[in-house]
Nucleic acid binder design. Sequence first.
RNA 1: GGGCCUAUGGUCUAGCGGUUAUGACGUCUGCCUUACACGCAGAAGGCCGGGAGUUCGAAUCUCCCUGGGCCCACCA
Length: 782
Amino acid sequence: MIEESKTFEENKNWNRALEKKTEKKLNSLKWDFNPYSEKEIFSMDTPPPYTSGRPWHLGAAAQYSKIDAIARSQRMLGKEVLFPMGMDRNGIPVERYAEKKYGIRMRDTPREQFIKLCKESLDELEKEMFEILRSFAYSADFDNVYRTDSDEYRTLTQSTFIEMWKAGKIIRGTRPSNYCIDCGTTIADAEIEYKEMETNLVYFYFKIKESDEKILIASTRPELLGACSAIIVNPEDERFKNFINKTAITPIYNKEVKIIAHSYAKADFGSGAVMICSYGDYNDVMIIKELKLAEKIIIDTNGKMNENSGEKLKGLKVKDARKEIIEMLKENGTVEKIEKIQHRTPICDRSKTPIEIIPLDEYYLKVTDIKDKLENLANELKMIPEQHKQILINWLKVSTDWPISRRRYYGTEIPLWYCNKCNEPFIPEEGHYYRPWKENPPKGAVCTKCNGTEFSGDDRTFDTWMDSSVSALYVTKYLSDKDFYEKTYPLSLRPQGIDIIRTWLNYSILRCYLLTEKIPWKLAWIDGMGLDEHGEKMSKSKGNGIDPTLIIEKYGADAFRFWAASEALPGSNFLFSESRLQGTAKFLTKLWNIARLVNQFGIPENIDEKQINESDKWIIAYTERLTEDCRKGYETLNPFIPANKIREFVWNIFAPHYIELVKARAYGEKFSESERKSAVYTLNYVLRRVLLLLAPITPFITQTLWNELYKGESVHYQMMPEPNKYDDRLLILGNEIMEFNSNIWNAKKDKKASLKEEIKVEIPEKLNSVEKDLRSMHNIIS
RNA sequence: GGGCCUAUGGUCUAGCGGUUAUGACGUCUGCCUUACACGCAGAAGGCCGGGAGUUCGAAUCUCCCUGGGCCCACCA
């Protein structure tokens, strides 16, 4: 008791040091999830953050703090809340992190050792991540953390793959992929960078079969001439109108190719005519697919020209072949000119060498045959805000089968072996975690095609989205606990960022639908992105990222959380601004000081309603309306509403108008004991209510104040109050009080009088019921 | 280049068919009034991006233009 009042005496403002005092207590509060509870279940498929360590993304931290506010508010609304804590730990980012940290390269490191180093990195990074999350009281279930690289999780990823394999949803296909010759592997789009490089744009002629004319084309990749399958020209380009649908003959190879009109060819670049080859770039891929042209492969996986390139080029490296064919074309007399141009070239971000597009054998999850169904599901899915659904729907229109295999080390292994005799894939049973790159297939494995018993394991891993897209199944115990699953699936909510709609949201719907024939959640809540103060996306590469830890240490977690909640509606992007965050810190100090004041008067026992003064009834009525608004906000998963409503109420109404009005009465000066009690009762009534309404957004200050003033069980274990009935006429009275106050303040201002100076003024009749308070507040004499 | 979103006082933000257009930060003026100077009170500051339309009536609905953001593609 003594120690507690000291907190108030010694601290005139709310700050991080005070938060630290309560952090341990706050983070030790438990909410065990009981799937058999009588309460309504609210289950969340929360995003497992990628374990990338400091500095974490400030925008992401803000998003997580809002998700936490949702979880906390749902608990206080009386729901049984499943709020899982996951860690996404597979894939390229950690591989890169480990390479950098240990100065190694994945492909030069024994796989076993590389995996070990990744794991060690992850464990360190994970610790940091937990600290950050705990520093702002993220209240997920830290006692049951799931990790996407655990044996259990990977078992789920593999089992669901096996299930889909058996159902015929997985296909094997050879499709053009990004290939780095230097690294000897397919690489993901995310691993490509672009670099301006000088290159030759070679202009040369094709003969026209049907006439004596020639067509001039321009190419930076003349060495691919042998793989040319068409020429395209813009349909609007007058120069080529006569050539459309005629046949051209390739120099040197003397092959016939069609001249086709396609808007991709731009009249103002090069000669205006483009040769389409398999594969110079992704436009070639697109156009060859679109026009159903024949694919001819001319570069092998060693980066050398193959037999399709002809005797002279065969065996040469791409670069040498380019030089050689230019010479050949010159000899042939078909070269018009050669221009030096700057060309934005895709290169491998590790080896910095140009990537080639080469068809490779990979696994795909079939999407194209259920696209209509997926679009229907997308339309069915409820989303907050609804408008972001368009992103998903647009994506579904253009998306193709999903390539799921990766030539990587740190990921969930593809659970397949191949018969050494006939190469037929062997797939094991569900329910185990398999590592085919170092393990034999299960005992008794027999090839289904040739009865062979010797196998080689697939050494590839899955795309990491294969793991994260079944988080909804993992947290509902799809494989391990049928009852639990029945109670919790589909989940109530998927909260996530707008930036991963096409990946996490899309793939989750796809995967879970294929396995369960249901959308995995009843509702998706899509938040916007945190941008820097100029409105640009924060990213490590741009160097404009802000470390949330520094902000939290400086201004406090509650200030940060309140800022995140109050800055923008869920779904909108939000700009980070330190000055506005400072503003929310000031609001918390305001609340702190209100509590210090109220605390002085002690806590009165309940009083008879008849004793409550009219001005007290007004602020109570206002509080009831505030409660209605806040509940509505929380019920619609929108912390923006309560945050702003509460701030407005506390700062603009409660403190300046009501507290000033009753302060003298609360001190008992010139008022009866009964009048005093009414004021103190009301002050506590309102403050208590505000703490409850604010608890999901600012857990630290509400925890501290609740404990100082009201003791007992934590504020976070309380129920969100229901609004009591109130008389609208009281709110009208309140408006009149506030208008009267402003008038008096203005009058004193005009006279340059201090606010406590005496003033002689008539009190309007309609304010008779609160006359005594007004007289004491403004020092009005008759 | 394609798509989506967005445009409200200096900055940010609410409003989504009829209000004197909300609030915050900043600015200016006065005040240390026994909770708070991280405060109190007051003030200035907006033809709600531009144009056309729908409507008795538009910041709010439609279309066009312009600027900003994001995602996708990316110059043979």
